[in-house]
Design a protein around this nucleic acid. Structure first.
Lengths: 215, 215
DNA sequence: AAATATATTTACCAAATGGTAAAACTAAGA
DNA sequence: TCTTAGTTTTACCATTTGGTAAATATATTT
């Protein structure tokens, strides 16, 4: 009985393994060429399978693309609620939020880039999601920042544009990493660079908000 | 004599006019689809000419793409030297720099997006430029900021990452405009939004640097 | 071991793509 | 007016593209 289950498991695990390998490969290709610029063939080559076999797992390109996007979005939704960020004081919340966002740029650079291509291209496949999922969260988070200001916990600041700046400043470590590598004279950004980045951006935001430092 | 010149001028002016119309169209298409995702056909359609006629003016896609990129870069180089920014105090320099950069996001959103696609894709055609042109300027500007810190004109801050943050926070108003439109509940970003953006980002940076306000 | 479900390869294909070659048309100068 | 230079259109074409259909191979279950 256990043996049977193992055999069944073996096959379905192979399947899952191959599926994720395909998704990782698709992420790489889409991050380099965007949706329309990526071919099923090149994704297949990256995953080391034939195009037809790829199509067996993901019967068309749009579906595959959506899966890649959705994976990234799920991660972001899970990790990036401003309200649920660890910390009691505004400064704690902000530090944890920025830290988390930069961590995601480091851990999922390809997914981030796919997302960036999509938004820059006008978000044809993401508009609905932005409206239905991101906007409510955004409105809530803006409200929270406004309440902080009202309570005098932070200096008055434009809350909407605060978020735009935080997102941009953190996202850029995934999207524009090539530019940074060149300007910093490095072959690739390492952990140390991301630590420096996190510290710099966090300090930046905390100072701009006039939140009191506690170290 | 004047008449002859005029006639000659008329034709060459038509040519110039059509060339710029093509470049504007190419900018739009490239900004939506990136390099590999854009077709000569769709650029031609956008410019209201035939594909063959487009090829008469720009004999191949890469050449056209490079022209679009170069145009944007020339504008940036011309307008974005930190050292040459108007103003005597660090605060003045920063205000003028941020203001100028956001103005470019407003005036050239498509060129900005083409540039963004290119960098995100690994900057295959831009690496050389970044090394030869941008890096020297970057190094100079970083030096200047360091000297400000040494003189106690601004609070100590990570100079390299300061620039990354400023660039990201300003560039985002071109690249991610769709996301902002949705989150702000607007059909498109208007002059008022860019004024708010400029003010927010400027205040943000100035506060973070601890430069004294003078208004 | 036979039957069945799953996975992979082979053989195609219509549409789109970047581009060539040359014909036809238009404007300019002698 | 005739010639020439500049522009646009027409006719192609090899390659790449996303995808279908079916044959083949490999596991899994009975």
């Amino acid at each position: 009985m256990a043996e049977e289950k193992d055999k069944w498991t073996r096959q379905s695990e192979n399947r899952r393994a191959l599926e994720t390998r395909i998704l990782r490969s698709a992420e790489i290709v889409f991050s380099e060429k965007g949706y329309s610029g990526s071919s099923m063939e090149s994704i297949a080559v990256t995953a080391n399978i034939s195009k037809q076999n790829l199509i067996y797992y993901f019967p068309n390109k749009e579906l595959l693309y959506k899966r890649v996007l959705k994976e990234m979005l799920d991660i972001w939704i899970e990790k990036l609620s401003f309200l649920e960020s660890q910390g009691e004081t505004p400064e704690d919340v902000i530090r944890s939020y920025v830290s988390e966002k930069i961590k995601l740029s480091r851990l999922y650079p390809n997914g981030s880039k796919v997302f960036a291509h999509e938004i820059i291209s006008g978000a044809p496949l993401l508009k609905e999601y932005l409206i239905s999922d991101l906007k409510p969260q955004f409105d809530r988070d803006v409200k929270l920042v406004k309440s902080w200001i009202k309570k005098g916990l932070i200096d008055p600041i434009d809350p909407e544009h605060l978020f735009f700046t935080i997102w941009a400043a953190t996202q850029t470590y995934a999207d524009f990493s090539v530019q940074m590598e060149i300007l910093l004279g490095k072959k690739s950004l390492g952990e140390r660079d991301f630590e420096r980045a996190e510290k710099a951006v966090t300090e930046f935001v905390v100072r701009a908000l006039g939140a009191k430092k506690n170290n």
